[in-house]
Design a protein around this nucleic acid. Sequence first.
RNA 1: GGGCGUGUAGCCUAGUCUGGAUAGGGCACAGGCCUCCUAAGCCUGGGAUCGCGGGUUCAAAUCCCGUCACGCCCGCCA
Length: 566
Amino acid sequence: MLAQSNPWLYIRKGVERWIEGGFSALAPKQKPKLRAKLEQPPEGMGDFALPLFEIASKLKISPERIAETLLTENERPPGISKMERAGGYLNFWVDSEYLTDMTLNGIINLRRDYGFSFERKKGRIILEHTSANPNGPLHVGRARNPIIGDTIARLLRANGYDVTTEYYVNDSGMQVATLVWGHLNLDIDWSESSHKKADHRYVRYYQETSRLPDSEEGIRKLLKDYEDGDPEAIREFKIHEEVLEGIIQSLEEINIKHDSFVHESKFLRSGDVAAVVEKLRPFCKSEDGSLYLEIDAENVYLTRRDGTTLYIIRDVAYHLDKFKRCDIAINILGEDHKLESKQLGKILDLLGKKKPLVIFYSFISLHEGKMSTRRGNIVYLDDLVDESISRAREEVKKRRPDLDEESVERIARAIGPSAVRYNIIKVQPQKQIEFRWEEALSFEGDSAPFAQYAHARCSSILRKLGEVEGFEPGSLINDSEIRVIKTLATFPSLVEEICDFERPRVHLLTSFLYDLARGFNQFYRDCPVIKAEEPLRSSRAALVMCVKQVTENCANLLGLEMPGEM
RNA sequence: GGGCGUGUAGCCUAGUCUGGAUAGGGCACAGGCCUCCUAAGCCUGGGAUCGCGGGUUCAAAUCCCGUCACGCCCGCCA
C-alpha cells in the first residue's frame, strides 16, 4: 500500500532499515540503537545521503570503515541502484525504473486521492479563521487570515482530520456599535459612492463616526442598551449582518467558505458570559464597578465600569463553548492578538480548561504604513481580486484572440483569484509583507499562472493524444522525465510533513507546485509526446497525465483553480 | 522600558524547528531559443562578508550569549 500511496517514503524507509541493520551488526551492544538520519544530498550526488561523522565518533570507527563495512556485507536495499561513499557520506541512488513503476501506478490508481491520507485521525478540529469585525469590507492587510486558515483546513483534511472552519462574528463590541451609531445618527451624502456591496457602503458610517470625538458617549450608551437586551438596540445592531454578507461574498470570490458562523451575541444572551464572570469573580479585583484580573503583573479588564463586557471575557465564554464541540481548537490570528491570546490561555488555565493552538501572521502593510479601516488608508481585497481578474482578462485576450468572450471570462476568473491566493500564501505567515501591486499581481515565475500554464499544456497534450493506455517504466530514462517523476513521488511525504499543528508550513505547497511545473516545462522542451514512438509515447502520456493529476491535487490544497486552457 | 516576531544579492523569497558536502528560487538586468505538443515558457550569464560581534562543534544561515535595525503589542478597543 505504502509503495503506491507514498513511493518516496517507502524507498526511504527501506534504506533506513538497511542502514540500521548494518549498524546493529557493527555494534551489537550499542544502546540505544543507532538511528539512520538521512538527508538530501546536493544535485548529482544521489537521492539520499547518510552523514557518517556522528556515527563514526559514537562507534570510534572511521567513516571510511563504516561505509566499507555497510557496502560489502549487505545486499542493496530495495529500489536502490547505486551506493557510493563520498567523503564522510554514504550516498544512495534510487533506481528510476523501480520508482517510475511505483509512482505512476500510485497516481493512476489513486487519482485525486494521491498524496492524501486514508487513515481517519481521531479528534474533531475547529479551525477559526478570518473572524473580521463586520464593520467594513475585508482589506488586504488581513487577507492572509482567510487564505492561511482555509489552506491549513484543506491540509488537515488531506491528512485525515475532521475539520470544521468557523467564523466568530464579533457583533457585540465597540466596532459594530460605532457602525450602528453612525447608521442612526449620520446623514451621509451617497451621491459619490454607489458601491453595490453593503460592506463597502456601510463602512462609511464607521469611518465617519470614528472621526467624531463627541460620538463616544452615544456609542457607549448604545452598547449598554444592547447588552441589557433593549429590543430596539438589538434590532439596530442587525445592520452588521449585511456587512457580514459582503465579507462572505468576498471570501467566496477567493474560493473560501466557512462551515460555521458563531455570533458573539449568542453568549451574551445565553447567560454564558455572565456565568463566566461569576466563575472568575473570586480571582478578580474590582475598581469603580469594573472587574479585572492580574495576569503577569498586568491588569486585564473583564468588564467596564458600566457593567458591559470586554472582548476577552466574551472570548473565554466562546472558547468554553468551542471545546464542547471539538477536541482541538486552532485559531488564525494577526500578530496584534498575541497578548490577548496569551491572556485568554491563562484564564482558561485558571478555569482548568483546554487552550486553543494559535497561528499568528504578520500584517500586510502599505509603504505608508499599516492599513486601517478607521483612517481609510487601505486596499480592499475585493479591489485586489477585481484588478487581478481584469489583468488576467487582458492577458488572455492578448494571447488567445481565437477564444470567445465566455471562455476568456472563465479563464480570467480562474487566474485572477488564484494569483492572489498564491502570492499571499507563498510567504511564511510570520514574515511581514509590504503590499505592492506589481508583486500581488505577479503572473510570471513563481506564481499561480505559471502552474496553471503547465497544467494547461498537460491538458492540451492529453486532448490531442486521445485514448492511450499503459506505460513502460523502463522507457522513461531522460533526465527531465526522471526529475519530474521524483517530484511526483515526494508529494505525499510533503503533505504529511508540513502538517504540523504548531507550525503548519503551507507555504511549501507553492514551492512544490512551482517545482513540479518547472520540471514539467523542462520535460516539455526535451521530450515530445505526440510524435514519440511507442512504447515511449504512451509512457510519456502516462507521465503527463500524472503531472496533471498531482498539479490538481496540490492546487486543491491551495484552493487554486486550474482552467485547463490559457 | 518590557514581551513577541523578522533580518539571506538592487528588490522579494526557500532553507533555520531537526547543525552537515558548491546557501536553492523568483523579479529586475545582459544575451540566446517560436517552419518544433500553447514563448504566462525554455537556456546562458553576472550579482550573497546569510544584520553585526563573540561562543559551542570535526562541521553554524541553522544552536547559545550579546548587540543593532525594523514590525506588532503593552487600551475599561478588538
